[in-house]
Each structure stands twice: as C-alpha cells, then as structure tokens.
C-alpha cells in the first residue's frame, strides 16, 4: 500500500449513456514516471480529472496518495500538483507574483516562499523575467514555469496533462529534464502525451483506447509484445481499432 502512489480499480465515468472511462485498473508506484497515453477522446483527461478530485467517478475504486477519490478529495488536493492542458497561471500577474500566489495557497510559509521562489527562478533561468507579466513570456517558458509552480509544495504526485503540447523539441527536452529532476526528489509523475519519443522516457505506460486501458507495461516490454521497433508502431497497432472520433 505504502509504495503505491495511485491505486485504481475498475474506475468508470459515465456522461449520460456515454462511457467516457470504462473500468480502468492500474497502479502507479511511488517515484515512478507513469505515461498515460491514448488518442484524442480516449478518456485520458476524464480519468485524470477523477484522480485529481475534480470529477466524481461513476463507479469503481481509486486512491491517490492513500486517499479515497470519493470522500477525501480535499486531502488529495493537498498532496498533488496539477498542470492542465490549458495554461493556468495568471497571465496578468508577474512570474514572481504567480509563484507567491500558488505557493501561498498551498500553505508555504513566508520564508519557504522566498527560498522556493529564488530556487525556482534560478533553475529556470528566469532571473531577468522575474518581474515580467507571465502573459509576455514565450510558450515554452510558460510551460516550464507552470510545471515548477505545480510542484512548488513538494506534492506526492504531480499530474501533467499534455504538458508539452505546441512546444519546440529543445524546450521539450528541457521540460523532461525538469520532470526527471522532480522524480529524483521522489515526486511521482503521472503524464499524458501525444509524443511517442516522450513515451520512451517513462518508466511504465498505459495506452487507452475508447475509454479502456488496452496495454500497460514498460516501453521495452510493449515494443516486444507488439513486435514493434518504436513506440509509434505500438500506438498505431492499438489506436487503429478505435471507434471514437477525435474530440
């Protein structure tokens, strides 16, 4: 129990007679980088929102950081970080003000805020831009900043929903350096992506098709199982059978 960051069993989410997430089961180990793959509309975001306590499951069981997703959402929210597809920092606040705000609402003390702020700005090399409005930063920097802010309170798990969408390859690479750095500090990473090269960076990953998890293993094992040379081919083999149209 203690070495699992997320335990998920037969989790379902139904919108009317549409089953967005259909009985998915998986575990995520502590400190693991877990890739959560799937085509558009496969149900990734819905599943992630349930785990973050943003949405009630229709049925099934799940615990996140040891807390129940039905009853202990507030406890979950204290122990996770979340970075959504939509950019979610305040564009009309400066870099420093955003850090202060999110750090503050996660209950960091004044000295922690100062210390974390300096450390974060230094690691991202944002020294000069510290007092710039976030809206003026290029997208790649915004994403890196959003990630750093999402883990400012040292959460047990951080959920990343397509964090590198629309970002150039160099910045993506830097972004994954940040992810590895966070994983080294013991933060469990739960990440969705559409880039198959990024899938290779994950310790383990699952692929969702039409609301179900059709495959779950290490990248190497998946490639062997589907006798594919790259993750791309694995993904094609699975997602080709999808019935749902993209969202």
């Amino acid at each position: 129990m203690t070495d699992k960051a997320i335990v998920c069993k037969d989790l379902c989410k139904q919108f009317g007679d549409f089953t967005a997430v259909n009985r998915i089961s998986f575990d995520v180990n502590k400190g693991e980088i877990y890739g959560f793959l799937g085509a558009n509309g496969a149900g990734k975001t819905t599943a992630m929102r349930m785990l973050c306590g943003l949405s009630y499951p229709t049925s099934g069981e799940a615990t996140v950081a040891g807390y129940n997703v039905y009853r202990q959402q507030e406890a979950i929210k204290r122990n996770i970080g979340y970075m959504s597809q939509k950019f979610s920092l305040y564009e009309n606040l400066t870099v420093r003000e955003n850090i202060r705000f999110y750090g503050g609402v996660y209950g960091l003390s004044d000295s922690q805020l100062k210390e974390k702020g300096v450390e974060l700005i230094e690691r991202l090399g944002l020294g000069k831009e510290m007092n710039k409005l976030v809206g003026e930063l290029p997208l790649g920097w915004k994403q890196k900043l959003a990630f750093s802010v999402a883990i400012i309170h040292q959460p047990t798990i951080v959920f990343l929903d397509e964090p590198t969408g629309g970002v150039d390859p160099v910045t993506r690479r830097q972004f994954w350096d940040l992810i590895y750095h966070a994983a080294d500090q013991g933060i469990t990473i739960f990440v969705t992506t559409h880039y198959m090269d990024e899938a290779e960076y994950c310790h383990r990953l699952s692929i969702m098709v039409d609301g179900r998890i059709d495959a779950l293993d290490t990248p190497a094992e998946l490639k062997r199982k589907y006798s594919a040379r790259t993750m791309d081919e694995v993904f094609y083999a699975l997602a080709r059978g999808a019935k749902r149209s993209a969202d």
Binding site: L54, K77, K86, S88, Y90, E91, Y102, V105, Y106
Partner: peptide, 14 residues
C-alpha cells in the same frame, strides 16, 4: 473561461 478556475479547484483553497 481562461481555465485558471480549474487550477484553483485542484488546490486546497476552500
């Protein structure tokens, strides 16, 4: 509209 409310909703803000 901007989506920041979702970020607020995953924080422990009551």
């Amino acid at each position: 509209e901007i989506g920041t409310i979702e970020q607020i909703n995953v924080t422990p803000i009551k």
